[in-house]
Design a protein around this nucleic acid. Structure first.
Lengths: 200, 200
DNA sequence: CGTCAGTTTGACCAGTTGGTCAAATTATTA
DNA sequence: TAATAATTTGACCAACTGGTCAAACTGACG
């Protein structure tokens, strides 16, 4: 039905979302203004509101996109694969997302820090379910003696925390390590940590 | 010189900072308004500006306080103590701060996510120096065979990331684990992780 | 070329923002 | 108690906010 997006629409929708991501990720929803997004996207404010019904609508669109991208890699964990390698694959994937999409990570962080007013329902339903299943799988692996027994929830939290740290606290990391790329060292540390934690 | 703070001044300064912390931690600097802080503190807006020169001044006061509280526990690491226990003590201390002062943690997080415009200089000077010294100490411990050799910087980052996660992403953690207190499990996981990482 | 849907904008609006100020109120102290 | 200092407030302001709208412009297509 709404398949037909003209060339201009496609370009402008994308420009607005890109600008919105940049601005919202830095200042949060309330701290961002349509004027900022307008300036960043190169469009006039009324023109932006021609493509999105409101400031809210831009933010919602970004969040919706984000949530699907965020949850997918958890689903990709293969219960039939080698446990340690599967978890490692997931952790490395998340780390790569922090390197490639730091703004998305920061947008998500600001939303959660503010109490997740718009996505709390997703957290308590989809996210919770998906994590619960992963926890069951991890426990199953541990029961089968394939990995060391660890608290699966806090294992997952620690992977999230560490990988997202490199995106969200980028300024701080760079203040300490300098500007040179640190993701390779981070990946090595993460791998070492997980192998130590999970190898029997 | 400025020692003499009247009873009323003390009470109101504290009420304003407390309210400011609550509001700024949730909405960030730009997303917060003096009216919110006024409502939260029970004072009128002009009255708030009688005690603090500007919205900015409140925020700066909070940040300054925060930074000293934040850096102290790193300084408390005892080079002469048992390495694993010293690092563990530090990590647990940080975790306790996340439980007791989640708003402070979130305020710091929003400031860093926004690019740390007001404290970048502190990050590249004091924080950097303090972390560098800790890294040297950790490397020294590793060279002496007292702990396993790990990247000290990423070790510190991982401690920060995990402990702060429980404050900053509290809503998400609770969405997954439920409302019951999870800090005990978190501490156990953290201890297990660090012992695994650091024990030779 | 003409036409018409799709696009863009300047001018505008009402509500909110950080901040000011003189006047009123309250505490302190001589 | 009277005078003085500290505190509090209502009224106000200019700048900014998200959003509207009619009018102007542009591009695609017969």
């Amino acid at each position: 039905m709404k398949k037909t997006e003209t060339r201009i629409q496609k370009k402008n929708h994308s420009a607005i979302k890109s600008a919105g991501l940049k601005v919202f990720a830095q200042f949060g929803f309330r701290g961002s203004t349509l004027d900022q997004i307008a300036a960043e996207s190169g469009l006039s404010k009324p023109n932006i509101l021609y493509y999105f019904a409101s400031k809210d609508a831009i933010y919602e669109a970004l969040l919706a996109q984000l949530l699907t991208d965020w949850l997918q890699p958890v689903r990709d964990i293969d219960p039939a694969g080698d446990p340690v390698e599967e978890i490692l694959k997931y952790a490395k994937h998340k780390l790569k997302m922090s390197r490639l999409y730091p703004r998305e990570s920061r947008l998500y962080a600001t939303e959660i820090i503010q109490g997740a007013p718009r996505i709390k329902s997703v957290l308590t339903s989809e996210l919770r379910e998906i994590v619960e299943n992963s926890a069951l799988l991890i426990n199953h692996w541990a029961d089968s003696g394939l990995i060391r027994a660890v608290d699966p929830y806090h294992l997952i939290f620690s992977i999230w925390a560490i990988t997202q740290h490199y995106a969200d606290f980028d300024v701080q990391v760079k203040a300490i390590l300098g500007e040179r790329d640190h993701f390779e060292d981070a990946e090595q540390y993460l791998e070492d940590m997980l192998r130590r934690m999970l190898t029997v």
